[in-house]
Design a protein around this nucleic acid. Structure first.
Length: 319
DNA sequence: CGTCTTTGACCCGCGC
DNA sequence: GCGCGGGTCAAAGACG
């Protein structure tokens, strides 16, 4: 395991302010909102001019992010075209697929189904296309690795379950105790869409038992589940959305740290709660409002994509 | 009764 | 070829 690239890009999207003793992290939700050009303030203080101005700022920010997203998609398409050309010039890479054994052929058929399956957006559907072309074990290893992302979940050390709430629906199909780690490793498949072949491995970190490492392989070929079930959010595994920064060719693996140690509760309590603003002042915000804001943000695929782009851009600046 | 989890067995790749 | 270890399968049980 390579822990060198541990980059704490924790977003700490605090969508559950009902926790009275929660400390406001320096990168707390409010800071995120401020960085996105949003501002939380009392309705009494809001004048229409301020709101209009705020709207303009948000629109400008949205344009900027959209531009970044467009550029990223263009780069991706260019890369994919190059890959397709390479595959055409090297047809032997496909022969390996047809001559492999039964289990391999099963995987291929699954990948083919992927192409027919329901696709959430262009980038993800085309990534399925890429999946199909990434079957030669050695030569295309980097291609496969590019689809692996790693997410670190901070959990209670006493919590022995290997369940992480990342918003998707997973079916556990195996558990193993690996040699390099005394804690068991759980294997999950995405169960939201039959054609989705995304897998994840969840295991406690050797160094820090309070950290659960989730390794995601592949990309979902369906929309974010919460988007399709907006009114069906229950405590189980739809409550939180993890930012899984899918890595690109330039970054073989990407890590994101999320803090689940402060567990959310299924509560209909919509009474105003205290939240920290800029680390010192507090103001009352109805939970329902916070949840609506958080939900609208976290369910927006474009927002998440733009956020991922912003994070990767920030990481590049740091390097 | 359908879905999900558990867990032992099996498969497969890799190193020797 | 053999053994090891990671990954997957699938039957059985648990659960709602």
């Amino acid at each position: 395991m390579d822990y060198a690239p541990w980059i704490n890009t924790s977003l700490d999207l605090n969508i559950n302010p009902q926790r009275p003793h929660q400390e406001a992290h320096k990168n707390g939700m409010e800071n995120n909102f401020f960085s996105l050009g949003l501002r939380i303030s009392s309705p009494k203080e809001e004048s229409s001019d301020v709101l209009v101005e705020e709207l303009k700022r948000v629109s400008a920010e949205n344009k900027k992010l959209t531009g970044m997203l467009t550029e990223m998609c263009e780069n991706y398409n260019t890369l994919r075209n190059n890959m397709m050309e390479y595959m055409k010039k090297n047809p032997e890479t496909k022969e390996v697929i047809t001559s492999s054994k039964k289990r391999k052929s099963d995987e291929i058929s699954t990948s083919n189904n992927n192409l027919i399956g329901v696709n959430g957006n262009n980038s993800e559907s085309s990534s399925s296309d890429e999946d199909q072309s990434c079957k030669k074990p050695r030569e295309l290893e980097t291609c496969i690795k590019a689809k692996v992302s790693r997410v670190y979940f901070k959990t209670e050390p006493s919590d022995s379950s290997l369940i992480v709430k990342d918003g998707y629906q997973w079916r556990k199909y195996g558990q193993k105790v690996t040699r390099d780690n005394p804690s068991p490793r759980a294997y999950f498949k995405c169960s939201f869409a039959p054609s989705c072949i995304v897998k994840k491995k969840v295991q406690r970190s050797v160094d820090d038992p309070s950290v659960t490492v989730a390794t995601y392989e592949g990309e979902h070929n369906h929309p974010y589940p919460s988007q399709m079930e907006p009114t069906n959010n229950r405590c189980r595994n739809q409550t939180n959305s993890a930012v899984t920064a899918s890595s690109g060719p330039a970054a073989p693996s990407t890590t994101v740290t999320l803090d689940w140690t402060k567990k959310p509760k299924c509560s209909n309590d919509s009474s105003p709660k205290n939240v920290m603003i800029n680390g010192n002042s507090k103001m009352e915000i109805p939970q329902i409002l916070v949840e609506q804001m958080a939900n609208s943000l976290t369910k927006d695929v474009k927002f998440r994509a733009a956020l991922a782009a912003a994070i990767s851009g920030q990481m590049l600046h740091q390097n």
